[in-house]
Nucleic acid binder design. Structure first.
Lengths: 197, 197
DNA sequence: GCTGTACTTCTAACTATGTTAGGAAAAACT
DNA sequence: AGTTTTTCCTAACATAGTTAGAAGTACAGC
């Protein structure tokens, strides 16, 4: 029997090519840095010439946009994959979430740069590729809710706190742990502030 | 009577020209954004052609470097000018410092971007122009010391906390106050954590 | 006052990069 | 088989930072 819906080989190949292009873009990013990738370099890695990339992406920023979406989709998937392992107590849950995010951010600096820092001049994510970032935050919101933390400002304070530690670590001691080791203390401070058990 | 040391008109003019150039660079920054300034644009504003700037600065990044130094020098001066107004209690002093820094950062986003965010690809400040940033942090360290907070980790946590709020405000709600209004709460949380009166 | 030296600015040009125009080749459809 | 659509190419443009080398300017010493 044939597949129910006839496969669209053309669309499949197109998607595969696009995936190949962003993979190549990540490759080059890890070699030369996020801002230093060039269309000619990316094209080389997939055996094309630069202008051909325009068949698949409207601009260089559109490539960044796709990378942004992919990174946050990964992040969302990661959070969902460890969601079940979240411990029971509110305090422990917040600590777990903090570590999950922090480790993910520190694991790949270029990725973190694209996801969380406004580092590419002129680039801002499209609505479409911003969606998984929103979804990830929703997941955090959910976790907070299920632990009785419902005030949006509480979550804002938490994200600023954890984000501040990540950024400080990234900017002032990359590869080290000067701020990483403050993470548990920070979460405890926050949990105490909310009178969590 | 003549001045004791003969004036070096050449050096004077040179410095004046350099100052004019960074002023023009700030001008253009405020019009088009920090990353979008061009040597030709800056040169135009001082009645020159782009290559002439190389008589005064080694590269575009050297101009950013000078701007960086100037911005932190301003910041240091600002901190020193309000230092005397710092209130007596430790908690109040921390709150005062937080507001001073936060307001300074939010007042000029481009400046904050250059001072605190790694936003210009390939640029990192020279030792020389990083000095006023270090001096500013020393001032904070001093304030902490004089309020009995001596553990370096305590200061690290504080800077990450305040920096996190600034960055969150800047990235997610520029011009608004979604994180700005959490500032006092954050400082109180921190002060409670350190058992400050 | 003239002249040589050092400094400043200029024009012309190079290189790298994102991007567009328009045509050839490949694939898909009828 | 012929037509259309899609993909990729070459050629070229515009903008940017930067370099080379000539022309102009300021000033010290004779």
């Amino acid at each position: 029997m044939l597949g129910k819906t006839k496969r669209d080989r053309q669309a499949e190949r197109r998607e595969a090519t696009q995936a190949e292009i962003i993979d190549a873009a990540w490759d080059m990013t890890r070699e030369v840095g996020l801002a230093q990738i060039t269309l000619r370099g990316v094209a080389d890695r997939v055996g094309m010439r630069a202008p051909s990339l325009y068949t698949h992406f409207d601009s260089k920023n559109a490539i960044y946009d796709a990378m942004f979406g992919q990174a946050w989709t990964e992040c969302l998937a990661h959070f969902e994959s460890v969601k079940a392992q979240a411990p029971a107590g509110a305090r422990e849950a917040l600590r777990f979430a903090a570590h999950t995010f922090f480790d993910f951010a520190v694991k790949d600096l270029a990725r973190h740069q694209l996801m969380n820092l406004r580092t590419i001049p002129g680039f801002s994510p499209s609505e479409e590729n911003y969606a998984p970032a929103v979804a990830t935050l929703d997941l955090a919101r959910e976790l907070f809710f299920s632990n009785g933390i419902t005030d949006p400002e509480d979550l804002d304070l938490y994200t600023a706190l954890i984000g501040g530690l990540v950024d400080a670590q990234h900017a002032n001691d990359p590869g080290g742990d000067r701020w990483a080791r403050l993470l548990d203390r920070a979460v405890d401070m926050y949990a105490d502030h909310l009178d969590l058990p």
